[in-house]
Design a protein around this nucleic acid. Structure first.
Lengths: 163, 163
DNA sequence: AACAATTAAATTGTGTGCAATTTAATTTTG
DNA sequence: CAAAATTAAATTGCACACAATTTAATTGTT
């Protein structure tokens, strides 16, 4: 049963052309979007990942490092230093959960909560730039989420194809 | 003129929900694909970015750091240490261009060229996993390239909206 | 020819991202 | 209840990614 996809071709060498790689389109587009966010977030003193973490905190108030990682699909090796920097910047507080001393609860400070006002129009700013592509961005988001599901979560192999 | 996109909503707070962000779908999908590549490339001793660089070299033979950066949309701050690691691993050679001593030319070693054989089925392996999403991957790639175009290249502001 | 401007890499410093390991707390089991 | 297993963070070590700066070579301009 032949495989027909974006990355399969009768010519075996053609599969290794950079221009044929979905992975490169995805990778380079993410880097390009990261640069756009870096510009937009610079006035707020935030990095892109810090902004993602703040979005979760604005939504939930208090959250453990573990659950934050589940939301952002990141592990403690990434989050611990990130949160320490945000704590040093006065945006969040970190404290052990009295009910379970293994957990660390992250909460917003006044300054962290206040940043929400300044961030309110960032999605629109970025959406305006993305909109110049003329794409259906909602559909693109849905497709990316479907692909992400096929690729599997952190630490989990996506599919056992048997071979 | 109202803006109608994936990230605009009548409720200003809804725009800041993580689940509504195209950026997060893109970011997290890229990380997920990176983890898949890390598994597939581990037997070859390659990282994902090293694999991208090798694809360009397999295609072009010899290339300057500058042109490699144009192909991969990366700058020398990323490429110089990457290429040094690849040189230390015996995959590439780096030498000043005699015609223009500013340039550094990167070429494949025997070992680097030979890796192409082992890499030949990687696109198919990855495509097989991506195909379980049921998406039209070719169309997705085209859409991502269009979005990347709207976002602009490294060092270049994407659009001047005037305001 | 001399000097300014430009170009190509390299360097510096910061911030992710992740595998692997470690530490401490909690839960499960024998 | 005590030992084993599990869980949550933190830590360690490595590899990007990028802005900003520096260095050296080339091009251009008068």
């Amino acid at each position: 049963m032949p495989i027909r996809t974006a990355e399969a071709s009768p010519d075996p060498d053609a599969n290794l052309l950079l221009s044929r790689q979905l992975c490169f389109a995805l990778h380079s587009t993410t880097l390009a979007l990261g640069r756009v966010y870096a510009r937009v977030l610079a006035p707020l003193g935030l990095t892109y990942t810090q902004y993602l973490a703040l979005m979760v905190l604005w939504e939930t108030g208090e959250i453990s490092v573990k659950r934050l990682g589940e939301r952002l699909l990141l592990d403690s090796g990434t989050l611990t230093p990130l949160l320490k920097r945000m704590e040093a910047a006065g945006l969040v507080a970190r404290q052990r959960d009295p009910d379970d001393e293994r957990r660390v609860l992250v909460t917003l400070t006044q300054a962290g909560a206040a940043l929400r006002e300044q961030a309110r129009d960032i999605p629109v700013q970025v959406a305006r730039i993305c909109a110049t592509s003329g794409l259906d961005l909602e559909a693109l988001k849905t497709d990316l989420e479907a692909l992400r599901g096929a690729l599997g979560e952190p630490g989990v192999a996506p599919v056992s194809t048997g071979q």
